[in-house]
Amino acid sequence: MSAALVRQSEAPLLQVEGLTTSIRVGGAWRDAVREVSFTVAGRETVALVGESGCGKSLTALSIMGLLAAKVGRVSAGRITVDGVDMVAASERQREAMRGDRVAMIFQEPMTSLNPVLTIGFQIGEALERHRGMSRKAARARAIELLERVRVPSAKARIDAYPHQFSGGMRQRVMIAMALACEPRVLIADEPTTALDVTIQAQVLALLAELQREVGLAILLITHNLGVVASVADRVLVMYGGDVVENAPVRSFFARPTHPYSEGLLKAMPRVDSAGELVAIPGHVPTLPDMPDGCRFQARCPLRIERCTERPPLAPLRADPAHEVRCWVRAS
């Protein structure tokens, strides 16, 4: 209960309002992320869930301001990171924000580090860039950071190269790099997908611990609902660029409401039931083939005529904190 109170008192560090991101497919601009809104407060973890191509990573890139100009653009909405409007900011301002106040870690720790530079240099480089630290001071701080992410014998390994580290250790190095400048917001894009299950748990525990210490707001992008259940406070399910369900984590797992969320949970293997896994029939349509109205309609078992019209993200009567984008289930 007290944890919930602390959470409430934190101002949102990441605010996304009506974000629409378009990408160019075959010469035409199409909305790949539609009117996505959410906030992440300090010490809060929001999970963005959905299968490949649903717009999760595009949302993250929009927040970071890293859409390549010719391929993608934020066509509507506001993104505020720690009070700074990332959409209105100049490229220079966005560059200064990245790595300093908003950081990101990726799925592939094996390839996300530069193979020919020492990890000490790579961790310290952000400090040189954003804090104007000298090489020597940055190196000393890099050792502290390496100790903080629990890399054993940090002092001895500061001058080692990435190939001398295991996957889990490299992901810790990535976390140290991301947190070097003490950002307020961390976007973690599938941070544990490439790791062994035991290492996954360690890395998630480390992230949670660092989050408590520095009051980080974490946006966790994943398709692993097990990870969501263990670390997230709130879940956003995306499908075809739409947020189809937005719920606190407990009520999401207790009452998955959107037919797509139900399908996702049924398709997840569980230890405690011998039931067969049920796949969601069909596949995600490509952007040009995306239906108007509800984007899940072609694969939905509950489809009614009204689904050709786009449903709003509406709160459930029983639980106003739980929102769903579905004509059938919202009523």
């Binding site: 924000m97 990726f106 530069n114 480089e125 860039r129």
Partner: peptide, 14 residues
């Protein structure tokens, strides 16, 4: 196209 270039971008490197 290597991932470490993306890592540099998210760290705000020019």
């Amino acid at each position: 196209e290597r991932d470490f270039v993306d890592s540099c971008r998210v760290l705000g490197f020019s």
